[in-house]
Design a protein around this nucleic acid. Structure first.
Lengths: 370, 370
DNA sequence: CGGAGTTACTGTACCGGTCAAGAAAAAGAA
DNA sequence: TTCTTTTTCTTGACCGGTACAGTAACTCCG
């Protein structure tokens, strides 16, 4: 490069183009350029063409999202709060299916999906990331994130959660489904029935009913559904809890724990199909056959249920519908809040409860004769 | 309510508190209130206490994220571009594992993860959502989203992609892994080898080498790796393509298609473990045993590989490491861009290539004697 | 031909913060 | 005591848009 050529200057990046840059170049007001992008009906087609051409030439991409978010009060995304460990949530097939359904439903509205992480030391996405609303999904241990979302007065839809007053929610009928599962086992003649559930902040262990109070919505409703018909039949349930870890490994471990007990349970009601899969392994480890020597019932009716041998008797829920409805509900709340001007979480909150259904397959049978 | 009490006024929601509101109440400047939240070392501890107390009393949650994003040029989230159908991507276990690893790594930096949907008619998240950077993951048919991200001059890390000049990337050694898989089959004595791959915009069908040009990075590298040792050994590969649908169903379908051919392939190299699982089914449907009558090789070494019976011979890649490295690389680029002031995508881009490894399990054996 | 109604564009205020430089008071050094 | 230095707070400009209320010209209609 010749020393006389001051090319260095040239490498300095041109200042980023803004509406004003374009306006000056075209000789119109900034507002007109804004309209060219955001409200095409506000100016003549030919001027718009001219503006867009100049914008393109200047490398202008479109209105700055952050600025637009500030001015319009719209961020263009919605948050999804899964659990404090996103990784953990994403290894849960059911949770992923839910997110997937939400994404599919929210996509056409032009919004992106922001997965809220637990954040670092000083930054908390639930408090510090711009969004138009949020979906709070179950299995959250740390409720502080929910607290931030609420304080921000964001539109929120709660899923698999007791919604606070004034908030919309989408739930499934855990109670009815669990009842059906337990009744099924009772009618087969089982009397030694164990319940393997997850529970807030819990490690492995046997629970008594006093502990149920520490449960979140889903756990509580299912345990209630499982135990009620048992108690009515004079059968004392054995409730064990496992942590929020890898459900299959944990299910196996809890299965071992159960199968060592005496009297040995003849049936296990599981919080999820994945846990049931773990119990299958424990049974296999112990040389017990399902369902001849051990009946197993799952929950969710995920893909896994039919991959297992024998196919799993389980309680079906429609996760995709749950996701779609949650997304719809959230969009509805957002639009309503927007229409009302204020950020006020207004309007009549809607509570949806989806039905569940017992699906009897090959993993349940009468208990072995004593 | 008595008519004399003008309570109606009261129901109007108090205007949302801002820094100014608090400043006025405390009797300091707006900037000081800002510092109380964002730069605690800039004011005395006691004044800060007082400010925070008033803020709390006014229901102030913290600096408005959108405003802060505009002023600081930091959004607090990073985008992840998976495929034009998020749902499809989320049903892919490998993709989910990747996202999960990214989330885990990015979380502590205080950023959230925004899944970019394909958007609606007029809003395109890749263009219209504020973010600090983005990760572009493979399996994208529609590259316009990438175009928007690039035009925005965002920090981007490409994964399983040929990165454009100047961009960092994280890839795996698809070529070496595929070579090892093919060589393994050849050394077992196979001569009728089929390749079942996905490919851009492709429907089911047999391909000839001219079509390879339409492939994206991963497909191209793998096909190259599979075919090279075969051609060197004088074996003509049969390459078939399947669409981006449900991989297991599609694998089954492509398996049927292959097994009907004459001469019938004695081995199939699959683009993924999931496709291999589909081929297992097709083999089972056709009454063929793996590996006695059909050898199958997968790719990824996902969970599935060991769930199959027999366990799947496959090429292992470390998806979690890929995700972590991508996240690290992105954060590095973001910090660098920030340090350099301009949005310029500067600094030396880094290209990481992770190694792959053939894992021989039970799904491969010598071809049946003719 | 005059007033009502459009169409096409402009001007100003505001969204809610942060940055950088400066001023006043308090502390430390010569 | 006087001259730095530090601490603490303030001022004014700016981030890049959008809303809303004009204004001027142009069309429609009796």
């Amino acid at each position: 490069m010749s020393p006389s050529a001051p090319a260095a200057r040239h490498t300095e990046r041109m200042a980023r183009a803004t509406l004003q840059t374009i306006a000056d170049r075209v000789g119109v007001s900034r507002m007109t350029v804004s309209n060219a992008f955001s409200r095409p009906d506000q100016l003549s087609a030919e001027l718009r063409e001219r503006i867009l051409a100049v914008a393109d030439a200047l490398g202008y991409v479109g209105p700055n999202p952050a600025a637009r978010a500030l001015a319009k009060g719209v961020a263009g995304n919605v948050g999804v709060l899964l659990s404090d460990s996103l990784t953990q949530a994403l290894t849960d097939q059911v949770a992923v299916a839910f997110v997937s359904a939400v994404a599919e439903e929210i996509g056409p509205s032009g919004r992106a999906l922001t997965l809220l992480t637990s954040g670092g030391t000083d930054v908390l996405p639930a408090r510090d990331v711009a969004m138009d609303g949020a979906i709070v999904y179950s299995c959250i241990q740390d409720a502080t994130a929910i607290g931030w979302l609420r304080r921000r007065e964001l539109p929120i839809v709660f899923v698999d959660h007791d919604a606070p007053a004034g908030y919309s929610s989408v739930n499934i009928d855990d109670h009815v489904g669990a009842r059906a599962a337990a009744s099924h086992l009772l009618s087969l003649g089982h009397r030694q029935i164990a319940i393997a559930t997850t529970g807030f902040n819990g490690d492995f262990g046997v629970l008594d009913s006093a502990d149920y109070d520490t449960f979140a919505h889903v756990e509580r409703e299912r345990v209630r559904g499982w135990t009620e018909p048992m108690l009515a039949a004079g059968v004392e349930p054995l409730v064990v809890r496992l942590p929020h870890g890898d459900p299959i490994d944990d299910g196996r471990r809890i299965g071992q724990l159960l199968l060592e007990r005496s009297p040995r349970p003849t049936a296990v009601l599981c919080f999820s199909d994945a846990i049931a899969a773990g119990v299958y392994r424990a049974a296999s480890d112990a040389g017990l056959r399902v369902p001849a020597e051990l009946s197993v019932v799952g929950f969710d009716d995920s893909r896994l249920a039919r991959q297992l041998q024998p196919e799993l008797t389980t309680v079906r829920q429609d996760v995709a519908a749950k996701g779609r409805l949650a997304a719809q509900a959230l969009v509805a709340v957002i639009e309503r809040a927007r229409a009302q001007g204020g950020k006020r979480v207004a309007g009549r909150p809607k509570s949806v409860v989806l039905s569940t259904e017992l699906v009897v397959r090959g993993s349940t049978a009468a208990p072995p004769a004593v």
